[in-house]
């Protein structure tokens, strides 16, 4: 039995997941739940393809946040997840423009894109989960 075939069998129950995050950090638990879910999914061997940030969710992608030392750093967590697990962190351009989020202040591993990309994410993944208020 070839390795590739074996890998296909072993991964047959794995799903590809896209996440739509519609609330900003700290104000609402949505960004935390989305992160904890993504972390657990990756640990179980599923693929988290992308986190698409919409509405106030785009505020997750600014590198200007500076929470107190004893609090979680939500922006850093997304950045690490992007680098370590190849999860695309994508902020909607129209929503970003409304809220002052630009390429200049984007977290490492994050980028700005259009709603067409969200449509692609919906098409190419097995699941699209929404987190928000």
């Amino acid at each position: 039995m070839s390795h590739r075939f074996l890998a296909t069998i072993l991964n047959s129950d794995k799903v590809k997941i896209g996440i739509l995050l519609k609330e900003g950090p700290y104000n609402h638990q949505a960004a935390d739940t989305a992160y904890k879910f993504a972390e657990a999914a990756i640990k179980k061997g599923h693929t988290v393809d992308a986190v698409f940030l919409y509405n106030d969710g785009v505020i997750n992608a600014t590198n200007l946040t500076d929470p107190p030392q004893d609090d979680r750093n939500i922006a850093d967590r997304w950045s690490k997840m992007a680098k370590e697990h190849g999860v695309e962190i994508l902020a909607c351009i129209a929503a970003s423009k409304r809220r002052g989020i630009t390429d200049d202040i984007m977290i490492d591993g994050g980028s700005i894109t259009g709603l067409g990309t969200l449509t692609d994410i919906a098409i190419r993944n097995d699941r699209l989960l929404t987190f928000g208020d």
């Binding site: 799903v15 879910f37 999914a41 989960l129």
Partner: peptide
């Protein structure tokens, strides 16, 4: 259930989040 249980449910079902 924990977050891992949440993931198992998502593996088995499409999701409808009533925000």
């Amino acid at each position: 259930i924990g977050y891992d249980g949440f993931v198992d449910l998502v593996e088995a079902h499409q999701v409808n989040s009533w925000l």
